[in-house]
Simulated assay, not measured.
Amino acid sequence: MELILLVEMLDPRNDFLFKRIFGSEENRDVLLTFLNRTFEEAGKPPLTEIILLNPYTDKDAPRDKQSILDIRARTLEGQLINVEMQLFNKYDMDKRTLFYWSKQYAGQLYEGQSYKLLRKCVTINILNYSFLPNGRYHNVFHLTEDRTGIPFSDDMELHFLELPKLDEQVVPAGRGGLVNWLLFLKGINPSQWEVLAMNEPGLKKAMTTLEFLSQDKEARLQYEARQKYLHDEASMIEGAREEGERQKALEIARNMLNMGLEIEVIVKASGLSESEVRALKA
């Protein structure tokens, strides 16, 4: 495969760019192959076809900065699949996942319709940060009974694909599968794309799309606008988290001062400086 490296390659982890590559009608086959590699690794049967429910359009451009650029699809059997790329940690990912999964599940029915019409909903979160406390880059969750493991319902299926847990230095030569797709998304050096494409021929179209978008002036402007918004949003979230932690530390210090504890003990317990604790005492 001939690679065009005259311009800097854009980052496919940007959700706007991710949807352009995987969520457009002309690249529906790319999404189908990616989904099948994801399900194959989880021991699930492959899909034969999917229907895009919100294919990429010009309305998905980052002018509406509050938009969620996810990908929603339906299988021929009626199962719903939602794929979302998260470049930065917005925190409370567990509750956020359940909230959007429940909206997708409940949104299948109109008033008065039977619960029997509800179909399985699958959420696939691709995360650019570590979320779960293990070393696996692909984790899958279902509803099961604690002691026996028997399933309560197969209608819920949650996938978490964590890109930082991949070793991008180890390109699996001769080995197909999901890991190749995730290395591409993580932004592995294009000099190694050829190996990935040999492992996974379906990746060639995704790579060609990324090459084209990286050279398209309008696409770069939209990408940069979205990238700026995502960075600003991440900074605000991190700032709010740090402010919340500081307020918690101040509250701990106040309570310990009221208990009459030594300043040295309070400094160690709260993480505040000695001058900050003395100012509180004053």
Rank of each mutant, 00 (worst) to 15 (best):
E8V: 07
M93C: 08
E251T: 14
I71E: 05
M93H: 11
E218R: 12
N82Y: 03
R119Y: 03
M1Q: 11
S191N: 14
R13P: 12
F34W: 12
N255D: 11
S102L: 10
V7S: 12
A206S: 13
Q247V: 10
D29F: 09
Q113E: 13
L5S: 15
R254M: 06
I237K: 05
D15G: 08
A106E: 14
E238A: 14
L196K: 09
A279S: 14
N255A: 08
D29V: 13
D154W: 04
A206N: 12
I81H: 00
L10T: 07
K204F: 10
E157P: 10
P55T: 13
R241W: 11
F152P: 15
L161C: 09
E168S: 13
I188N: 10
L261I: 07
G43C: 08
F99M: 00
E111S: 11
E200A: 04
L3I: 12
R13L: 03
L80C: 01
S153K: 03
L5I: 12
R28M: 08
L80S: 03
G149D: 06
L221P: 09
N82I: 10
V83Y: 01
I21N: 03
E157I: 00
M85H: 12
D60A: 01
S130E: 14
E168H: 07
R246N: 04
K268E: 15
I252P: 07
E264D: 14
R20S: 09
Y129G: 00
R136D: 03
H159I: 00
F18R: 07
L69C: 13
Q215I: 06
G23M: 02
S275D: 15
L185T: 13
M256S: 02
I21P: 03
Q113M: 01
F160D: 02
K116R: 11
I266D: 01
S114Y: 11
R74W: 08
Y223K: 01
D216L: 10
L221A: 12
E162P: 00
K205N: 09
N139L: 06
L257C: 03
L196N: 12
L132F: 10
L69N: 13
L80E: 00
S130W: 02
D60S: 13
L230F: 11
N36F: 00
S214F: 05
P55R: 13
I126S: 12
S235T: 15
Q227L: 10
V30D: 08
V267F: 00
I188V: 13
T48M: 09
E274V: 15
